[in-house]
Structures are given as C-alpha cells and as structure tokens.
Design a protein around this nucleic acid. Sequence first.
DNA 1: CATTTATGTAAGTCAAGACTTACCGTAAGT
DNA 2: ACTTACGGTAAGTCTTGACTTACATAAATG
Lengths: 105, 105
Amino acid sequence: MTYQLALSALSDPTRCAILEALRAEPQPVGALAVRLPVSRPAVSQHLRVLSDAGLVTAEPRGTARIYRLAPQGFADLRAWLDTLWDDALTAYANEAAHRARKTRP
Amino acid sequence: MTYQLALSALSDPTRCAILEALRAEPQPVGALAVRLPVSRPAVSQHLRVLSDAGLVTAEPRGTARIYRLAPQGFADLRAWLDTLWDDALTAYANEAAHRARKTRP
DNA sequence: CATTTATGTAAGTCAAGACTTACCGTAAGT
DNA sequence: ACTTACGGTAAGTCTTGACTTACATAAATG
C-alpha cells in the first residue's frame, strides 16, 4: 500500500527532474531551484512530497538542508513493480502458448 | 522520456486497482467495472490512459474487448527505476564512506 | 545583537483530471 | 432487419494539486 504514495509522487515531471538532479549529487533546495523553471517554494513543496513518499531524505547542514535519494523508497517501489512485471510476463507467455495451441493443435 | 506517461498513469489508485485485477487474469471492461467502486465509462477512460502509457493492450473478442497487462511498458519503467535506484545506492555508499573517513581519519 | 542566508509555511489562484449521465457505434442473436 | 450486449465518446461538474507571492523561522556572521 505504501507504493501508492511513491507512485503519486513520481507522477509530476518537476519531481522527476528533482530526483534526476539529486541522482547526480545531493543538493540543498536553492541549488535545485535555480536549475528548475519553478520557484524555490515550489521546489520545497515538491521535496516535502518526495520525503513523505520515502524517496528522499534531508540532512541539516548549517542553515541549509542537503537532500539526497533514499534507497529504501525505491526498493519498495521496485519490489511492487517487479511482481506486476512478472505476472505480465507469465500471462503473456500463457497467452502465446494458448494461441500456438489453437493455431496448430 | 516515455516513462513519464507510465508514471502519470500509475499515480491513480483506481488505475492501480485495474492493473492488479488484470494481474489475476485478462478481463473485459464490464468485468472490471463491477468489481470497482466507479462506473463503467470511468473504467473505460482509465483503460485508455493505461493503454496510451503502454501498460495494457486490448484484443477484440466479439463485441467485448479483453484487456491484459503489457510487459513492454513495465520493462521500460523498470529500467528507468533501476538506474535511479542504483545511483541512490552508490550515493548512499559514498556518503557512508565519507562519514566513516571523517569520524575516524 | 543586528543582519544575512537558507529554508519551510500560509493563503490564494488556476488548470488538470477523475467522475458522472447521456449518447452513439458495432458485433452477435433471434 | 430488429433487438440486445458491450464498450467508447461527449459534455459538464467538482475536487485535487501545482504554482505564485508574502510571511515566519533558524542558523551563521559581522
């Protein structure tokens, strides 16, 4: 059930851009904002959503807060996606087998 | 870039419920609708979104249309998520090493 | 202690989208 | 051919949420 929060967080292109920026290196809010086409408060709000989803963590560094990717959140999401993917593959294989049996009994 | 469509599609809980229903077995629209708390046209619209995202495919079966999971869409999504996850892990490891070096030089 | 720096929060605006009912098209059955 | 079954589409409503500006808070610095 926790994956729904992460999926909802990833639906926004700006948030994905933030994650891809953090992928390169951990950064404070201001550094992210100057690279993005939105205001700094908007970035802060997005980081809040990402944090609630368990996709990023923050560490105080003076007055700044350094944000970085949180492996755990991505691991949970990956697990959910993998089960769905596996079932999709087996269903696809089953259907292919069924089709082959029908075409050449 | 194509993963953004899939992520946007997965942000809705009803669409996730549809996918989990299709995970059990391929179904027509009506069969999905009776199990969900929304109307049939709503399910049809959701399936349109999922189809555009490459997460499901439809096959005509008389007047009905059988929807099933599309492995390719999930594979693309998985690939994107994996790169992000890998970078999150290495960043985490780097930070841990940095922290250890600082604590005990 | 005042100021600067860096950030989170509040309030308000506006567009995206999820849902409904009503309607239309198409394939199968009688 | 007419009817029935199944599903996509149109139009309209209403909520969600992404963004802005303005304000408040906390740490470092002179």
